[in-house]
Design a protein around this nucleic acid. Sequence first.
DNA 1: CTTGACCTTCCAATGATGGGAAGGTCCACC
DNA 2: GGTGGACCTTCCCATCATTGGAAGGTCAAG
Lengths: 140, 140
Amino acid sequence: MNIGQASDASGVSAKMIRYYEQIGLIRPMGRTGNNYRVYGDEEVHILRFIKRARNLGFSLEETETLLKLWQDKDRTSASVKEVAEVHIVDLERRIAEMQGMVKTLKHLSHCCSGDDRPNCPILDDLAGAAPAPVPAKKRA
Amino acid sequence: MNIGQASDASGVSAKMIRYYEQIGLIRPMGRTGNNYRVYGDEEVHILRFIKRARNLGFSLEETETLLKLWQDKDRTSASVKEVAEVHIVDLERRIAEMQGMVKTLKHLSHCCSGDDRPNCPILDDLAGAAPAPVPAKKRA
DNA sequence: CTTGACCTTCCAATGATGGGAAGGTCCACC
DNA sequence: GGTGGACCTTCCCATCATTGGAAGGTCAAG
């Protein structure tokens, strides 16, 4: 199997497959006489694992951890669960942050008449809200 | 006012102020004889505007649009509202995406015993196994 | 033999920011 | 006058994950 076929079978672009090899996420593949990389079912399986982890929002670093745990027959399910739960907390923090933005924006947008006149509370807010005060440094 | 003071007053790092100038988001500042950039209250006001927009999750490109609208006295509030609402939709799409991830992960994590044994439905899912069965309701 | 679809490596860009080196400048203090 | 340190300048590099493209080799069908 060439890299293009492995890409089609796994959903990971050929570019990314080479990159994953380069950064050591996957092992360097064997080559044919023409210097083409050769893939088998196991490699495709690994690539699919990576793809799914990425789809779930795991970073490549987290994915590497999960991949090693997957391949470690002596791992504990607790160690995997820990990685997942840390990631859940991180996702939830980012979700909350974005929800805060949406809430503010919706409020501003709701207050904005959205007509031909220039008066706009959205811009007023952007222009007027002061950032958190910075503690004074030793500067004249 | 030097760049450091403008930075403190606006909450935008000196690095970023120079970068914003470089990419044309803000106009090149006047220089003193010693080649230091000079800032006034208006520039700080603009920087605060940018900071606030970034805090609301607008990209630099969107921020540039808003900045131009802010400085255009003939803009319509509708044009601003449009930018905001497109951004809201985008944020909500990303929120929904992450919520989907969290939901899947929580389900998998819930199904994982998290003990010393190696058996782990999280990895099974990533590997492409059949979805983990839902455990009996609130009785773990 | 040509054509087109592959493959290879290498370099660069994205978006927004941080880090740091190397060198110039200003000011306060001794 | 000299010194130290806080500030400024430009320039390059790193991040994270991914895409794009150039330049060149290889393969299979027509």
